[in-house]
Design a protein around this nucleic acid. Structure first.
Length: 289
DNA sequence: AATGTTTTCAACCGCACAGGA
DNA sequence: ATCCTGTGCGGTTGAAAACAT
């Protein structure tokens, strides 16, 4: 997935690095350090520009650089930090040991943002097209359902944690119903919502998904805890994709209902939540008996 | 199996900034 | 104050890999 090597008009090699080049750069930097990136390639015997050497070292050869899939914790941290810092990849990377800004940037663009745009890979298989992208007024940060982490692992509400269990969120309280599809009274109520918004979306917006009636949006604003970094809202759409929404993404599409919250109730079925590992859920889990 | 499409990610590019002359 | 150089950052590219048809 790399440009093939070539030599530009200045005689500098570009494109993919060979093992020999990697070895030369690694050996030189480990022995002498990178005292001057511009001059380094000359002394290291590389026909590369200094920038290319630096990039290769920082993103690939530097000891401790972590490669491969992001863990759940890392992904949650990236989302959290991006909410706080925006596209400050280097600042975000500083909080993820072993991860480079470039890798985080790639991760964001290929996984997180793509989901936010409502166009994860699997949607193609479900018949979605580019036209399904949410409009800028209703951007959602959509999480797929990672198969390797189940709801029961996340919440451990009970051993079965059946896919039909319900988590009800009602006005300013959180109630968890572990009685499967019965819809009976909740077993516990956690007053963890500082302010609850129940979604009312203009689905005529291009790319908006019309939720099923029983899958109306659940939205809450900030948790009442001091952790302002929690995602500001959770919702899902008719395509079974759970989403995080931050106020930045609301864009006026959602209508606050806090002043008239007497009857509206939203819930997330645990079937939809399977594998969702957001810190928000961690918080819920923390609050449960 | 062949072909087309999408996703991934290493690498490049241009710009901004800091520090020194 | 201005210019120059080196470095770092963020956006973008493009070919390979993965996936779908």
């Amino acid at each position: 997935m790399v440009r093939p090597p070539y030599v530009d008009s200045n005689g500098l090699k570009k494109g993919a690095w060979s093992d020999d080049e990697d070895n030369k750069l690694r050996a030189y930097v480990q022995r002498y350090g990178h005292w001057n990136w511009r001059l380094l390639p000359k002394y290291a015997g590389l026909a590369r520009c200094g920038k290319s050497c630096r990039l290769r070292w920082v993103n690939y050869l530097k000891p401790g650089v972590k490669r491969g899939n992001f863990s759940k914790e890392e992904e949650a941290l990236v989302v959290k930090l991006h909410n706080q810092l925006g596209n400050k990849w280097s600042a975000i990377a500083a909080n993820l040991p072993g991860r480079t800004d470039n890798e985080i940037k790639n991760f964001w663009h290929t996984r997180i943002e793509r989901r936010r745009n409502g166009n994860p890979a699997h949607k193609k298989a479900k018949g979605h097209t580019a036209a399904d992208k949410p409009s800028s007024k209703a951007q959602v940060l959509t999480q797929d359902k990672p198969s390797e982490l189940t709801l029961s692992e996340t919440l451990t509400l009970n051993e079965s944690a059946s896919s039909d269990s319900l988590i009800n969120l009602q006005n300013s309280t959180l109630s968890v119903d572990t009685n499967s599809t019965s819809g009976s009274a909740s077993e516990s109520q956690v007053d963890c919502w500082a302010d609850t918004f129940l979604g009312s979306t203009d689905y005529s917006q291009e790319g908006c998904f019309q939720p099923l009636p029983e899958e109306e949006f659940l939205i809450h604003s900030e948790l009442s805890t001091s952790e302002s970094s929690y995602p500001s809202a959770l919702c899902w759409n008719a395509d079974d994709d759970l989403s995080i929404m931050s106020p930045d993404f609301w864009g006026g599409s959602f209508v606050s209902n806090t002043s008239n919250s007497e009857s509206e109730t939203s819930y997330i079925s645990t079937q939809e939540m399977g594998g969702f590992y957001d810190p928000f859920l961690e918080y819920i889990h923390h609050q449960l008996p």
